[in-house]
Design a protein around this nucleic acid. Structure first.
Length: 568
RNA sequence: CGGAGCGUGGCGCAGUUUGGUAGCGCACCUGGUUUGGGACCAGGGGGUCGAAGGUUCAAAUCCUUUCGCUCCGACCA
């Protein structure tokens, strides 16, 4: 592509709205523009990168026998009511009505549609396994879109769905996708890790997320320094000894604690460690109120709590409603003397507390010398806390590290959740109907592009990995006449070799071209100027390393090919 | 949804406190000089100041309503 004809509107200044680097650089490099909060237009340069990522995805999906199709983005509510996700999915589902006032939604994911298709079309175990995928625009009515394309309301995603006869066969399909994903992200030049993950609202039994390691990531990932253990913080467990040692059990007492409605304030007021405090959090679920107890120095992990309770939705209880229903006082909540129908879930860390502190369900009062079991009962003792850095790995005892990551892909074992609720069955070799065992597998295409930039950039701009670079080579000509002609010749020669080249033939000053080239970030830059051309040479520079070399005009193509394969 | 802030030419901003009829830098157009890391000189085009209503002789500026955007939080396959 010739720069003089290309629509690549680069920006010298950083738009004020862009917070993270990938967002800033995608705007500045002329890859995209914002239409509305969380909704972007992809300009030619951005579209080119997207296509490169998509092509890698296609190749690796096809390699594992998955077949591409295209499902509708606009979906009738009827299907979502069948799977009960019309209610469960919540406000994130972009809903709309047609002229007859029928309910529709814009698909955030396509389990319903694909299951509907397959239940009508696939009858026999002989048709399985089956893996179908698409690359589609997805919609999510995000509560707060941010970070550019990393959390948008409209985004491009590859989603695949596998159908198998049983769990063993699913395991095989799952593994194929896991392997395909590992190859895809490796080919995209990303530093990533697969980690064990929560299934969330989508349901099912097992899941892994593919995380690109980056400080700007919204997820926290836990790794063991000594073994393969890796998990999303939402799921991560560790080996910790909570017992404090022998201590004389004292008598329960109620004390005044004016205004101490936070853990910090309370510890300060009572001049004790936060480890003595029983943090008591009240939640409302579809099945009533729940008190979740963790030791004061820990955070509650809501995902763990939700999974323990087996409810789809969990919300912090509203203070007034909670009080009128249960007499529990938020800020001074405690599990002592509460109604029987309030479920109490305690983290193991709580059970080892001796002579602890808990709210008295009365403003400005706490109980001290509280001892679990003696002073209150719990319905279940189970791990519901968020683990901390340097705790011991459950598998090998090694140190755990916490890192930030961007989720670019996730694989799920769905089991029969959708096939049962929607009646997707096949006939086994005994002629008996069985629910299909499903898996689903997503890759955020646009998010992958942004993640690649988060991981590959410097102060001057993007540093594309070769495989997803919109252009592998940028040619800058500094001058006209012979210089321009040489540039044109090299441009043609490289294109003959199937290399994507951006040829900056504009009548701009050198500085402008250099800066735009750095910003756009082609892996290799060729500079042609009268100085070196007088000796029959052009200059090559590798964007990532800064390595520079001079080569004669007739060696350019070979050298470029060599460089690119070395970088790729 | 709670808290904070912002909407002034394509982009980045000043002007709002104290009303007097819109300005700067970048970008853009024309001419000239320049030409290896975001040139210089001269001339020029472009804005119903987010929208609606109100106060006033007069509103970007004051009041009311409303829409949009950003950040923090809650939330998140």
């Amino acid at each position: 592509m010739k720069m003089s004809q290309a629509y690549i509107p680069t920006l010298k200044e950083t738009p004020a709205e862009a917070e993270v680097v990938s967002h800033q650089l995608m705007l500045r490099a002329g890859m995209m523009r914002k239409l509305s909060s969380g909704i972007y237009t992809y300009l030619p340069l951005g579209q080119k990168v997207i296509q490169k990522v998509e092509e890698i995805v296609r190749e690796e999906m096809n390699r594992e026998g998955a077949q591409e199709l295209l499902l509708p983005a606009l979906q009738p509510a009827k299907l979502w009511k069948e799977s009960e996700r019309w209610e469960d999915y919540g406000p994130e589902l972009m809903r709309l009505n047609d002229r007859h006032n029928r309910d529709f939604c814009l698909g955030p994911t396509h389990e319903e549609v694909i299951t509907d298709l397959v239940r009508d079309e696939v009858r026999s175990y002989k048709d399985l396994p089956l893996n179908l995928y698409q690359i589609q625009t997805k919609f999510r009515d995000e509560i707060r879109p941010r970070f550019g394309v990393l959390r948008g309301r409209e985004f491009i995603m590859k989603d695949a769905y596998s159908f198998d006869i049983n769990e063993e066969a699913l395991e095989e399909s799952y593994q194929k996708m896991y392997d395909a994903y590992s190859r895809i992200f490796a080919r995209c030049g990303l530093e990533f890790r697969p980690v064990a993950a929560d299934n969330g609202a989508i349901g099912g039994s097992e899941s892994h997320e593919f995380m690109v390691l980056a400080d700007s990531g919204e997820d926290t990932v836990v790794f063991c320094n000594d073994c393969d253990y890796a998990a999303n913080l939402e799921l991560a467990i560790s080996d910790v000894e909570f017992a404090i040692g022998d201590q004389e059990v004292a008598e329960l007492d109620k004390v005044e604690t004016p205004g101490a409605d936070t853990i910090e304030a309370l510890a300060e007021f009572l001049e004790c460690s936060t480890k003595q405090l029983i943090k008591t959090l009240a939640y409302e679920t579809d099945e009533g109120y729940v008190l979740a107890l963790v030791r004061g120095d820990y955070q509650l992990n809501e995902v763990k709590l939700r999974n323990v309770l087996g409810v789809p939705n969990l919300e912090m209880a509203d203070g007034e409603e909670l009080f009128s229903a249960t007499r529990i006082v938020t800020g001074f909540a405690g599990a002592i003397d509460i109604p029987n129908d309030v479920k109490v879930i305690a983290d193991p860390s709580v059970m080892e507390i001796v002579n602890g502190v808990t709210g008295a369900n009365e403003a400005d009062y706490h109980y001290v010398n509280v001892n679990p079991q003696r002073d209150f009962t719990v319905d279940e003792v189970v791990d519901i806390r968020e683990i901390k850095e340097n705790e011991a790995c459950v598998e090998c005892g090694g140190d755990l590290t916490l890192t930030k990551g961007i989720e670019v892909g996730q694989v799920f074992k769905l089991g029969t959740k959708y096939s049962e609720s929607m009646g997707a069955t096949y006939l086994d070799n005994n002629g008996k109907a069985q629910p299909m065992v499903m898996g689903c597998y997503g890759i955020g295409i646009t998010r992958t592009v942004a993640a690649a930039i988060e991981q590959n950039h410097d102060d001057y701009g993007i540093i594309w990995p070769v495989a997803i670079a919109p252009y592998e080579v940028s040619i800058l000509v500094l001058g006209d006449g012979e210089v321009l002609e040489t540039g044109d010749q090299i441009y043609n020669d490289l294109q003959q070799e199937g290399i994507d080249v951006l040829f900056d033939d504009r009548k701009e000053r050198a500085g402008v071209k250099f800066n735009d080239a750095d910003l756009i970030g082609s892996p290799v830059r060729i500079t042609i100027g009268s100085r070196s051309l007088a000796e029959g040479n052009v200059e090559l520079k590798v964007r990532s390393t800064g390595e520079e070399l001079k080569v004669s005009v007739d060696e350019v193509v070979d050298t470029i090919k060599e460089l690119l394969s070395k970088l790729g």
